[in-house]
Design a protein around this nucleic acid. Structure first.
Lengths: 334, 334
DNA sequence: CTGAAAGCGCTTACAG
DNA sequence: CTGAAAGCGCTTACAG
C-alpha cells in the first residue's frame, strides 16, 4: 500500500492542504515546513495519486493519440516515428500518451475510440483522421479539449493541423523528372480520400501544366496502400508502353512497384525512372538506390506536441495549418 | 458539461446506487427501473467518468506499454506491430493503452517511466526490457499489478515472458546455409546484452557444432542496430576472404550489410549467401530477394495481451515463457 | 428489491 | 503563513 497525502501530513505535523501546496508549489510555505514535508514524503516514498488529482482538478496530464495502422507490416514506419516525436516532447512537459491504433481507417472506429478516450479524461487529442470530412467530431469532442490533426488535413472541424509539405515535395519530384527530359510520367497513388495523397496528385498535375505537358488521366493509377496493390499498379503502368518515369506517392506502393519492375526486368532508370516517397533505410539498398521524398515524421510529431501544449495553455489564435518541409533525396533511380 | 450519475438518478427517480448497479450489472434491478435508468442515461447522453470510477475501485482499465524506439527510422517496424497486436486484443476487453517509447534503451529511463506509470494507476505493465537484469523492477513495481515481458527475456524479476522462438528460427537458418554447402559462415549481430540476440547467437554456435563445423570467434561481429553499423560490419566481414555465407540477426543490420555487399559488387548468393531477420516487404525487392526469418510480431503483442488479461483475472500459475514460432521464408539470397 | 452514506485521495476556495 | 472542510463522481458495504 503506497503512502497517501494524509500520512505525509501526519508525519510532517502539518495539514494535508500544506502538503498539497508544497507538492504543487501553489502557495507560499516557509522553508522550515517545506523541508519537513519534503522529508516526510521522502521517508514514506510518497507518490501523489494522479487519479485523485485528475478527478479533483479536471486535468489528466494525458493526451490521446489516434493513428492508423494498416495491415501491411511496413505501413507502420511513419506513424511509429510520429508517435515517438509526440511522446518525447510531451514527456518533457509531464504528459503521458493514451494510444489507439486504428486498423480499419473507418470513421466508425474512430468515433468509438474517441468516445472511449472521452470517458477517460484527456487534456487533448492528436488525430490522424481517417477521412477528410470530420463534421461528426463536433458532437463527440464537445469542446472540452483541444484537437490537433496530424499528417492529414480535414474539413468540418476547426483545429490546428500539422502536415508535411506534400505539395512542394511532390512538385519538386515531378519537376526533377521533367528536367531529366521525361514527358510521359505516370503517377501511382494511394487512397485519394486523404488530403496527403490529394496534395501529392495536385502537385503532379500542376507541375505538368507548368511545364507545358498535357495531363492525361490515364496516367494516374490509384491503389490501396499495400505491396500487392503496388505490384499490380506497377504492372498496369507497364501496359502503357510510352511511359518513361513513375512517381509513386507512398512508400508501400513504391515497394510493390519496384517488385513489378524488377520482375519484368525493367532497368531503372534507363527504361523507367522512379521517384518514391519516404526516406527509409531500405530505399538505399534497392537496385538502384531510390530517389525519394523524405518526410519529417519525427518532427511532425514534435510539432504536433508543441502546438498541443500551446493550446492547452490557452494560447489565443485562430487554428492554423503548419506545413513542414520535405526533402528530395536524389539517388540513382532517376 | 457532461451529465453525471446524480442527474441520471434524479431523472430516473432512483438512487445513484441503483444507477451504478445498472451500469455495472452488479446487482439485481427490476426490468422496470432498469429501463427508466437506461432511458435517463440515453436522454442525458450520460458517460460514466472513468477517473472517478478508477479512484473508487482501484482499477483503471489501462495498461502500460513500454518499448524501445531506436533512432533509426526503420527500427520501429517491429514494435509498432507488437503495439498494434496488444492494442487490438486489449480493446476487445475494454482496456486502453498508456504508451511510452523509450529511445535510449537505458535502464534509468525505463525506471523513470515506470514510476510515471505508477502514479497513474495501471492495471498491468507490458515491457520490452532494456536490459537482461531487472532486479531493480522489484522496488518500483511493488506487486500491485502484473508484469509481462515481451520480445526479451529478463532475469531478476519473475514474470511471464512472450518471445519469438529466436533459437529455433536461427538454428534453422544456419542449418539451411550448412545444407547448401557453406562451411565458413559469418554472423553479424546486434547488442548482445539482450536475450533476443543472445538466443540467436547461441543457435548459430550450436548449429555449427551439431554439423561438425568448428566455431571461430572471429566470425562473429557485433554492432549496434543501425544501417551504418551494419554497413561497417559487412565491410569487416568481407576482409575475411574465405567466408561464403552470412547470417545477420536483425533487420536494420541486414540493410546495412546489403548496402556494403552491393557497393563492393559482391554477387548474392554466388559469392556470398545471406539470411536476414524479419520479413518486411522490402526484403522482397532487394537484388536478389532476401531469405529471412519472419517473426510473429503482431501475434507477440496479441499473446502478451492475452496473458496479461489472465493475470489480471488472477489466474494462478507460475510465470511462464511463451515462445512463438518463427518462419523461415526462403527466397533467392542463399 | 433498493437507498443513504461513507469514502477513494486529492485540490481549492474560505477563513483566520 | 496555515488549517478545516467541501467536493470531484463514482462504488460498495450496510441496512431494511
Amino acid at each position: 500500500m503506497p503512502a497517501d497525502i494524509r500520512q505525509v501530513a501526519e508525519l510532517a505535523g502539518v495539514s494535508i492542504a500544506t502538503v498539497s501546496h508544497v507538492i504543487n508549489n501553489t502557495r507560499y510555505v516557509t522553508d522550515g515546513t517545506k523541508k519537513k514535508v519534503q522529508e516526510a514524503m521522502e521517508a514514506l516514498q510518497y507518490k501523489p495519486n494522479s487519479v485523485a488529482r485528475s478527478l479533483r482538478s479536471h486535468k489528466s496530464n494525458t493526451i490521446g493519440l489516434i493513428f492508423p495502422v494498416l495491415p501491411s507490416d511496413t505501413s507502420n514506419f511513419f506513424f511509429a516515428n510520429v508517435a515517438h516525436g509526440v511522446q518525447t516532447k510531451m514527456k518533457q512537459h509531464g504528459y503521458q500518451l493514451l494510444l489507439s491504433t486504428n486498423s480499419t481507417e473507418s470513421v466508425e472506429d474512430e468515433k468509438e475510440q474517441i468516445e472511449l478516450f472521452n470517458s477517460k479524461l484527456i487534456d487533448g487529442l492528436i488525430l490522424a483522421p481517417a477521412s477528410e470530412e470530420l463534421s461528426h467530431l463536433k458532437e463527440i469532442v464537445s469542446n472540452e479539449y483541444p484537437v490537433v490533426f496530424i499528417d492529414r488535413r480535414a474539413r468540418g472541424y476547426e483545429a490546428d493541423c500539422i502536415l508535411s509539405d506534400n505539395y512542394m515535395g511532390s512538385y519538386e519530384a515531378v519537376k526533377l523528372l521533367i528536367e531529366k527530359g521525361h514527358r510521359k510520367i505516370g503517377l501511382i497513388t494511394g487512397n485519394r480520400g486523404v488530403s496527403t495523397n490529394n496534395d501529392r496528385v495536385r502537385a503532379y498535375k500542376q507541375a505538368l501544366v507548368d511545364y507545358g505537358i498535357s495531363y492525361m488521366p490515364g496516367r494516374i493509377i490509384e491503389g490501396r496502400s499495400s505491396f500487392e496493390d503496388g505490384y499490380a499498379c506497377g504492372l498496369r503502368m507497364l501496359e502503357q508502353p510510352d511511359i518513361t518515369a513513375l512517381f509513386v506517392t507512398n512508400n508501400i506502393l513504391t515497394m510493390g512497384v519496384m517488385g513489378a519492375l524488377q520482375e519484368r526486368g525493367i532497368r531503372i532508370p534507363e527504361q523507367m525512372a522512379v521517384i518514391g516517397f519516404d526516406d527509409y533505410d531500405w530505399t538505399r539498398i534497392t537496385t538502384p538506390p531510390l530517389t525519394v521524398i523524405r518526410q519529417p515524421s519525427y518532427e511532425l510529431g514534435e510539432k504536433a506536441a508543441e502546438i498541443m501544449l500551446e493550446r492547452i495553455a490557452k494560447v489565443d489564435k485562430p487554428p492554423q495549418e503548419y506545413s513542414l518541409p520535405t526533402e528530395l533525396i536524389v539517388r540513382d533511380s532517376c
